[in-house]
């Protein structure tokens, strides 16, 4: 159980995290979603006691991180896979971590086995690929068999096989009843990994719901209609009060199912050349929600970029 209460962090003039409150429950994978620079890493570092909050507090199982005795037995964290001395072996790295929390040395071999690094245990960590480094980082997080796990962008830069492995691993950990809190800037990835979502933008809470609810609420469903008698159809649809948008030789209808549109067309004797439901993409939804809160804008403002993506589909 992770709890943030009015968590804030200010760097000079910028407010990186702004009065953030949420709780992460056990037994589920909770995604922590937001564009780059939204304050995800800063929030995680505050939860872990690495950064001091400017305001508010973060608790793990009701206690601040600094008050945990042998914290690795309660909380496992992977903030950055590169937090390893390159000349130390994988086993050497895990051995000092284990020793610091008085965990038995054999636990090191267990977690190495668990993440599939037994074969390279004595190789220097500096020579590891990103995927191997991530596995080593996960091994470190699992050392103390903790009930709470935090991962910061664990799939960043991984190949599909590595991504799948990590995704399955998270589910397994959550199924075992653990609290799993994982950040990402990719909604498409989170839609597959997380059951709950905490969405932030510019350090502020945007949404806190189940992933399904979030995706359903965020993606707008529309129907594209093409017809040689478009004017007639437009008139008929207009009388029902749905919202319409002209797009070249077709109409985009939102707020009405395709079946109802088809029946309306038939009732009015209109020939249809196309009647296709359009599902909004997750990326679009995400950009619509966080559009105003992206810290570093490109020249395109976010809605315009969303339209461009939509047009490209």
């Amino acid at each position: 159980m992770i709890e943030a209460r009015g968590l804030s962090k200010r760097y000079g003039k910028t407010l990186a995290v702004d009065n953030l409150s949420f709780s992460v429950t056990p037994g589920r994978v909770t995604g922590f979603l937001g564009p780059n620079g939204a304050g995800k890493s800063t929030t995680m570092r505050m939860i872990l006691g690495l950064d001091t909050p400017t305001g508010g507090s973060a608790l793990i199982g009701g206690k601040p991180y600094a008050d945990l005795k042998h914290p690795l037995r309660t909380v496992g964290a992977l903030l950055d896979a590169k937090w390893v001395h390159p000349n130390r072996s994988a086993r050497g790295h895990l051995r000092w971590l284990a020793r610091s929390n008085q965990l038995p040395a054999k636990r090191v071999d267990e977690v190495l086995d668990l993440v599939g690094l037994s074969g390279v245990a004595n190789k220097r960590a500096g020579g590891f690929s990103l995927g191997m480094s991530q596995r080593l980082g996960i091994a470190g997080a699992l050392l103390g068999d903790p009930q709470v796990l935090l991962f910061d962008e664990p799939v960043n830069g991984l190949d599909p096989e590595g991504i799948l492995w990590i995704r399955k691993f998270m589910h397994r950990l959550a199924d075992e009843g653990r609290t799993v809190f994982v950040s990402s800037h990719l909604l498409s990835e989170m839609a597959l990994t997380a059951q709950d979502l905490i969405v932030i933008g510019r350090g502020r809470l945007i949404a806190h719901s189940s992933t399904e609810e979030f995706v359903a609420a965020a993606t707008e469903n529309t129907v594209r209609v093409r017809s040689p008698q478009l004017a007639v159809l437009r008139g008929a649809l207009g009388r029902t009060g749905v919202s319409l948008r002209d797009e070249g030789d077709s109409l985009v209808v939102s707020g009405m199912e395709s079946a109802d549109i088809g029946e309306l067309a038939a009732a009015n004797g209109v020939v249809l050349h196309e009647l296709s439901p359009q599902r909004g993409s997750l990326e679009e939804a995400f950009m619509q929600l966080t559009g105003d809160s992206v810290e570093y804008h490109t020249d395109l403002d976010a809605p315009a970029a969303a339209d461009l993506i939509a047009a490209g589909k």
């Binding site: 690795l72 937090w83 390893v84």
Partner: peptide, 11 residues
């Protein structure tokens, strides 16, 4: 190498 952060997480 940020192992100081790993250290402060452990201790």
């Amino acid at each position: 190498f940020s192992t100081i952060r790993a250290t402060f997480l452990a201790v």
